[in-house]
Design a protein around this nucleic acid. Structure first.
Lengths: 125, 125
DNA sequence: GCTTGACCTAGAGTAACTCCAATAGGCTAC
DNA sequence: GTAGCCTATTGGAGTTACTCTAGGTCAAGC
């Protein structure tokens, strides 16, 4: 498939896919005679994984480390797998913090909204 | 108080406070004889509100709109209050979406972690 | 044969900070 | 009294992670 479909399936924009490839987070994608990228199912799976990691807010540098390990020649060696696991675990903790923070902010927001709603009701009614 | 204390109390860095003032999200802060900013309790309350809005991910442009309305001469008029309420409500919806997305990503992450943990256990043990 | 459309590249622009260099007033220490 | 240090000031450069633009290729359709 071409970049348009890869984009639709992975949830990344075409620009982002090209940017990730340039940044070394993708093994260089094969090209057809015209020089157009040709993606296979594995490529799209990898793009989807990148999208999920980024959606949780993992910094690009960590995603790069993850990618580097996942594409290393000894990627199945226990130490490489442990490295990737460590990155994911570290990130899971960050994500939990972020969720707690958002929950607190949500309360602040709801509180503010209530104040505005109540005062506007009083003003009008 | 000076910018150092205002920063500590609001949770914004000194750079961010200066940046917000330059961007017009704060009424210009008073200065002492040396030209240093002097913050009062109201200033800090406002900074704290800005910090909370940004922590939820409200875009700066919307925060600016909110600030503009909150500092308008008719800021207590119902239509201005309604404007601010609308901004908060719009943002509450965005925030709820974001929370749902993070929750989904958390599942993805936990799932990946489990796969790695299991396979490493098998490998080692 | 000319336009259209999907793609290509390099590079500029954006959001929201964050950091840096150069400058200045005031305090203490010798 | 002046040297060093602290806390501030400014303008402007740097950062992250894209996002957009300009200019170009190539195959297909009319």
């Amino acid at each position: 498939m071409r970049i348009n479909e890869a984009s639709a399936r992975s949830g990344l924009t075409q620009d982002t896919i090209r940017f990730y490839e340039k940044s070394g987070m993708l093994a260089p994608i094969r090209r057809d005679a015209r020089g157009w990228r040709v993606f296979n199912a594995d490529d799209v799976n990898w793009l989807t994984t990148l999208e999920r990691l980024r959606a949780t807010g993992m910094p690009l540098d960590d995603v790069k480390r993850f990618a580097l390990s996942a594409h290393a020649s000894n990627r199945e060696a226990p130490e490489e797998r442990a490295k990737r696991l460590a990155l994911l675990e570290k990130h899971a903790i960050t994500l939990a913090h972020r969720q707690a923070e958002l929950e607190a902010c949500k309360h602040f927001l709801d509180h503010k909204i209530n104040i505005y709603r109540t005062s506007l009701e009083v003003t009008h009614g």
